[in-house]
């Protein structure tokens, strides 16, 4: 995680940390759906994709239960595929519902992000 650079009381730092955790956590669902956009992947591949293509550092203990939840919601489907490693792997792929959901979430994200950028513009000038 990047240093948030909050100077002040320990309580403030803690609040800022919690906020960042919440923010990241809120993005994971969309990040997973996006990682599966082009191809089916198994759990460890999804984790590596999130780490390499984004700044999202996701714990392994978070991703697997989340994948199970996305499956229960009908956004992803799964299948077991035999591998060269000698054991089967559980691959995930987007369903039609998942695809639609990902598009909706991405559109929401774009709107949210552009309106936040406008609001935050004066803060950027202030730190320079």
């Amino acid at each position: 995680m990047q240093d948030i650079g909050v100077s002040g009381a320990g309580g403030d730092q803690e609040t800022a940390d919690k906020w960042e955790v919440q923010l990241r956590k809120g993005c994971i669902e969309l990040a997973i759906l996006a990682a599966l956009w082009h191809e089916k992947l198994y759990g460890l591949e999804i984790l590596r994709r999130l780490e390499s293509d984004s700044d999202l550092i996701v714990s392994e203990g978070t991703v697997y239960p989340l994948l199970s939840r996305l499956k229960a919601l009908g956004w992803v489907k799964s299948e077991w595929v035999e591998s060269d490693a000698g054991h089967p792997r559980k691959y995930y792929a987007l369903t039609q519902t998942g695809r639609k959901r990902a598009l909706d979430m991405a559109a929401m994200w774009a709107r949210f992000s552009s309106s936040m950028s406008k609001l935050l513009a004066p803060l950027g000038k202030g730190t320079k």
Binding site: S59, E60, G61, Y64, P65, L66, A72
Partner: peptide, 24 residues
């Protein structure tokens, strides 16, 4: 170690499961 304790992991599965079911 990277996965965390089996108790915490199981509890995440159970809660996610409950919520997903309650939502649908």
């Amino acid at each position: 170690a990277a996965l965390g304790s089996p108790e915490e992991l199981a509890s995440q599965y159970m809660t996610d499961h409950l919520l997903a079911r309650a939502e649908v």
